[in-house]
Computed example of a mutant assay.
Amino acid sequence: MKKYILILFTLIGTNLQAQSLDTFFKEADAFFKNNVKNGKVAYADIHKNPDALNALLANAEKISVKESDAKNYQAFWINAYNLSVIKGIIDNYPTNSPLDNKGFFDKTTYSLAGKQITLNDIEHKLLRPKFKDPRFHFVLVCGAVGCPPLISKAYLPSTLDTQLEAQTKKAINGSFLKVKKNKVSASKIMEWYKEDFTMNGTTEIDFINKYRTEKVSDKAKLSYFEYNWNLNKQ
């Protein structure tokens, strides 16, 4: 009897966790749709009425998600990162840049999935080293114009790979690169995280050509343009 009771409680707990995670994704999707347009965030409006954001993050605090459940795990932490960036901006609003706020990425902590965690921890401990996917750089949005654009929807486990591909292609074929004949100037992201774009013996140009419609020469000279840290506000 005890064995069956234990199984029952395990099933109930698993079901409640799934419901909580599904609720988080639905509410996050609604929040992004209401507050993000063309990659820009309505910080002023959110600052006036932060209830939806605070409720979302309160829900995120209770989420339980395992690394072995890779799609749910990645989708949760990508959304949690982007929401926490917005929360960090709102808590310091008005502000002109995330860098204007000391410790924005490496000192300020958020209560997420039972952890007290910084933005850098999410990116550099929970995502990049565990999954080694350079596409994360095109969906984790740091609150600045130089970042890839924030989409007006949540990242969902069922569509995650498609969304990662789409955002990477959008960046590589858009403002992430400046191409002139055999000269390629890339966002500083590609310099800061060179190891992510040159895994398994590939070059940065190889990575670019994997996603770029108009290919660049293998002999192209690569440089990096300065990052625009101005706030990505509407």
Rank of each mutant, 00 (worst) to 15 (best):
T95E: 08
K37Y: 13
L119E: 05
P129N: 06
D45N: 15
K33T: 13
N38D: 12
D100H: 13
P50R: 00
A42H: 14
V85C: 04
G88V: 01
N101E: 13
I86N: 07
N49Q: 15
K102G: 10
N54A: 13
H124N: 03
A75G: 07
Y110R: 00
Q116C: 09
D29E: 09
K115H: 06
V65F: 06
N120V: 03
N72E: 12
N92W: 01
D100S: 15
D121Q: 11
T109N: 14
S97L: 06
G39K: 01
A55H: 10
V85A: 00
L56Q: 02
R135Q: 09
S68N: 14
A113M: 01
F131N: 03
D45H: 15
D121M: 03
S111P: 13
K130S: 11
G114M: 04
S64A: 14
A30V: 11
K102D: 11
K66D: 15
I86A: 06
D91T: 06
N82Y: 06
D106C: 03
L83C: 05
K66F: 14
F76A: 03
S84P: 03
R128N: 09
P98W: 09
Y73W: 08
V139Y: 10
S111K: 15
P94H: 05
P94T: 08
Q74R: 12
T118S: 14
N59L: 14
H137Y: 08
K102S: 09
P134R: 04
A113K: 10
N101F: 02
K102L: 05
L126A: 04
N82I: 04
L57Q: 08
N38T: 13
L83I: 00
K115W: 01
S68G: 07
S97A: 12
S64Y: 13
S68L: 08
I78C: 07
L112G: 01
L119F: 00
D51P: 12
F31C: 02
S84W: 00
K130I: 06
N38S: 14
K102H: 08
L57V: 12
E123K: 00
W77T: 07
K62V: 02
Y43H: 04
A113G: 10
G39W: 06
S111G: 11
R135L: 05
K115G: 07
L119G: 08
N35G: 09
I89H: 05
L53P: 12
L56Y: 04
N49D: 15
E61R: 14
N38R: 09
A55D: 15
W77S: 03
A70N: 14
A30F: 07
T95W: 10
Y73D: 01
K33W: 10
D106K: 14
I117Q: 02
